[in-house]
Simulated scan of single mutants.
Amino acid sequence: MAKYSMILAILCVFLLSLSMLRPDRWRDVEDKARQDALLFASIAERPDRIGFALIQDETIRHLVLFDVNQIPIYPEKDGFVPVRFTLSETQLRDLMEIYAQTTESQWLRFDRDGQKLLNCRKEDAICLVYDRVALEELFGLRTGALNNRGVFDWLNVVLGVVSMALVAFAAWSKMCQCSVGTDLELVPDRYSARRGDLEIALTPRDLKLLKLLIDRQGSVVTKDELYDVGWGRDFMPNSRALDQHIINLRKKLDPDRKLPRIIETVRGVGYRLST
């Protein structure tokens, strides 16, 4: 009995150690916020370029840039701001108060339901409000994965162990099942696609990207390859247009979020159509 208890204890310690090593789902989100802050700080004196950059990023909902006196320099009081990113006086005042109390990068909920996440960065003189669901989709996370920015605790350990067990079980289950292939069918002459009973209207760019993914089904298609097909080689470097386009395309292919995801994110490389 003692021998089995020792084995069980060793197994528990092993699982707990593995759970501590699991990737932090917030690391990529924090990196994105840092890169966004650097981008907007570099164009702080060009409101037109800020507006263009905002429109290119589906994850950002609001943005405020501050000067050394903690006074907003963007949005300008009488300047142009794309309608989607306007702030009410109350929201702007709230952001100014939060920023004034910020000493380091800080993540908070910006609305009661947690659909918007606020990141204020004193070192970069900026506050960014993100769409939580769009961030989760961008990084291939499950819905609700970014609900809380909590610190590491024993509950996270337990959740880590459970998550690992579920992942292992899912992998085992997948090995026991036969692949049935994707249910997506392109109809190029109508600029549309079918998925079960769903008929999906596509743009010419949607069609080009999906055709490449289908032609290479099961293999990773790099971001550069997708940019070449969808935008051409002259498209600006470091743009997130492809990532945002994939988010929108996933929504088209499964508007009710009831079907298996068929466009998979391969972190740091590109995308793959599931088999």
Rank of each mutant, 00 (worst) to 15 (best):
C12F: 06
T103F: 08
G218E: 06
Q177R: 14
L207H: 09
I50V: 09
K252G: 00
G140L: 06
R261V: 11
C127D: 02
R190L: 14
L242P: 05
L210Y: 11
T90W: 06
L259W: 00
I246C: 01
L95D: 00
Q177N: 13
R132M: 01
R250N: 15
I50A: 01
L202C: 10
P82T: 11
A165R: 10
P204R: 11
L95A: 02
R109Q: 15
G140R: 03
G230F: 00
T103S: 11
E137L: 13
G268R: 08
I71C: 04
H245F: 13
D36G: 04
S173V: 12
T275E: 14
G196S: 08
G232Y: 12
Y4T: 13
L39E: 01
S19N: 02
D111K: 10
L213F: 12
A53Q: 05
R25Q: 13
M164T: 05
I73R: 05
K251A: 04
Y4R: 12
D94N: 03
L249V: 15
V167T: 12
L63R: 01
D153A: 07
L209Y: 00
L141I: 02
V81I: 14
G79S: 04
R142T: 06
L87D: 04
D131W: 00
V167N: 07
Y271T: 02
D197N: 12
R190F: 04
K122F: 06
P72D: 03
V266K: 10
G232P: 07
K3L: 13
L11C: 07
R112Q: 15
S42V: 13
L159M: 15
F139R: 06
T143N: 09
I214T: 13
A44G: 15
D228P: 02
L210C: 10
G140H: 01
R195M: 14
V13R: 00
S17T: 09
A37D: 03
N119V: 11
W26Q: 05
K208F: 02
K252R: 07
L39V: 01
G270M: 02
G218K: 04
M175C: 14
I71F: 09
V29G: 01
L202G: 03
Q70Y: 11
I43C: 03
Q115E: 15
V68Y: 06
Y4F: 13
S19Q: 03
L207R: 08
V187G: 07
K32G: 02
A165H: 08
C178N: 14
L54T: 08
R240C: 09
V129Y: 01
K32F: 11
F85A: 05
A134F: 02
D256Y: 08
G144M: 07
T59D: 01
R84P: 04
R272A: 12
D228G: 03
R61P: 00
V29L: 00
R240S: 12
